[in-house]
């Protein structure tokens, strides 16, 4: 019996020390990680809606409850909306493919950026290449926004197409009237 108490005590001590160390490391790194992800979003917002001088995150139920939509930002120039950036995702081969879609004016796609993906290196991850993504530029949201898939990366390119389509229909249904 005394053995068991002693052993549980030792295990308890080791686990609590490790918990304390991790809590400390976490408090050291948490801020940096958060800051970095915010920076990443800010830089893609700026390149997608170049005219805007101010951004606001839209989080009303009507928008974020839609399928495939993660986050929506509105870009303002001198107080009036000039465009939207929609973070949406599609189901790829290795998991979710997350993209940020910029939509300006009355429905022109200003660009698409891949935010995170875990597609097969050398094949599926070709979707991050500019030569593929630039084909979205200038597409109109009221028309078909899908582009040709990359050979050997059909599933991954379809995931991007799905995500962009979701963003386009969100714009047509809701954002356009704001």
């Amino acid at each position: 019996m005394r053995d068991i108490i002693k052993m549980s005590l030792i295990l308890l001590i080791i686990t609590s020390v490790s918990g304390m160390i991790l809590g400390f490391t976490n408090s050291m790194t948490e801020g940096i990680i958060l800051e970095r992800s915010l920076e990443e979003i800010a830089s893609s917002l700026e390149t997608l809606i170049t005219d805007a001088d101010e951004f606001e995150m839209l989080d009303d139920e009507e928008i974020i409850s839609r399928e495939r939509i993660k986050e929506v930002y509105a870009g303002y120039e001198n107080g009036s909306i000039v465009g939207f950036a929609v973070k949406s995702f599609g189901q790829g081969y290795g998991g979710e493919v997350e993209v940020m879609v910029g939509i300006i004016g009355d429905g022109t796609i200003s660009g698409v950026r891949v935010m995170s993906q875990s597609e097969t290196p050398g094949l599926g991850d070709k979707i991050t290449e500019e030569s593929f993504l630039e084909n979205y530029q200038g597409k109109i949201t009221s028309e078909d926004v899908a582009i040709d898939t990359i050979g050997g990366a059909t599933v991954s390119s379809k995931a991007v197409n799905d995500a962009v389509e979701a963003a386009a229909s969100l714009f047509e249904d809701i954002l356009k009237n704001r």
């Binding site: 080791i14 686990t15 490790s18 160390i21 991790l22 490391t25 050291m28 790194t29 940096i32 990680i33």
Partner: peptide, 16 residues
Amino acid sequence: VVIATFVTMVGMILEA
């Protein structure tokens, strides 16, 4: 537990 602690620390450092 010891190994997992170090792994988690390395993971946090990598992420940051």
